[in-house]
């Protein structure tokens, strides 16, 4: 009975998946870009998360909730990829090249973000770019609020160490 009811609902209106993707793709991609630090990785991460949403597309009623689900999927996938590959990352894949990043606008920020562990980086992006409350950051990271606060505090401390010398120079120029 339930299955029949769901199928009857298919015919009416546009596909919620299409509507969701059209509305939120760019915002999600931007978040993914900050979390991964690489546009290609960001696209992979986002597309993988959206593919997971597709089977549940008929249940999409609240765009905010669906966006939260996609973001959570991206964050956790990103962190778990790190868990699986961190040995290789530590030994064979160097961090983003400072020289390459320096050519970008705000390359200092890119380098500083790249230097953060992935959980800290994701926490910083969720809190300071997406402006999520700490409780939601914890939920999306899949950890306790206390742990999320620890990630945020450590991330901010590391970023401050990397970025504050630049701020001081800027201050002297003015």
């Amino acid at each position: 009975m339930k299955r029949e009811d769901i199928r009857q609902g298919d015919g009416g209106g546009g596909d919620p998946f299409d509507e969701f993707v059209s509305a939120r793709y760019q915002a999600l991609l931007r978040g993914a870009y900050l979390i991964t630090g690489d546009l290609h990785d960001a696209r992979d991460l986002l597309h993988d998360a959206l593919a997971r949403v597709y089977p549940k597309r008929r249940t999409i009623r609240d765009l905010g909730a669906a966006e939260g689900y996609v973001r959570t999927t991206m964050v956790r996938t990103h962190v778990s990829r790190w868990r699986r590959t961190r040995r290789e990352v530590l030994t064979s894949a160097p961090p983003d090249s400072p020289a390459a990043q320096a050519a970008e606008p705000d390359g200092q920020l890119a380098v500083a973000l790249a230097g953060l562990p992935r959980r800290q980086r994701a926490a910083v992006v969720l809190r300071y770019y997406l402006d999520l409350p700490v409780a939601q950051v914890a939920q999306e990271l899949g950890c306790s609020v206390a742990t999320a606060k620890t990630h945020l505090a450590r991330g901010i401390k590391a970023l401050r160490q990397e970025l504050e010398p630049v701020r001081e120079l800027v201050g002297r120029d003015h």
Partner: peptide, 24 residues
């Protein structure tokens, strides 16, 4: 962070994503 993210702009490849979703 906002300024850095704003550099990324892309249209949503809806059809491609739908195909990937069906495959999954």
């Amino acid at each position: 962070l906002g300024a850095r993210a704003a550099r990324v702009g892309a249209g949503a490849p809806v059809a491609e994503l739908r195909v990937a979703g069906r495959r999954r």
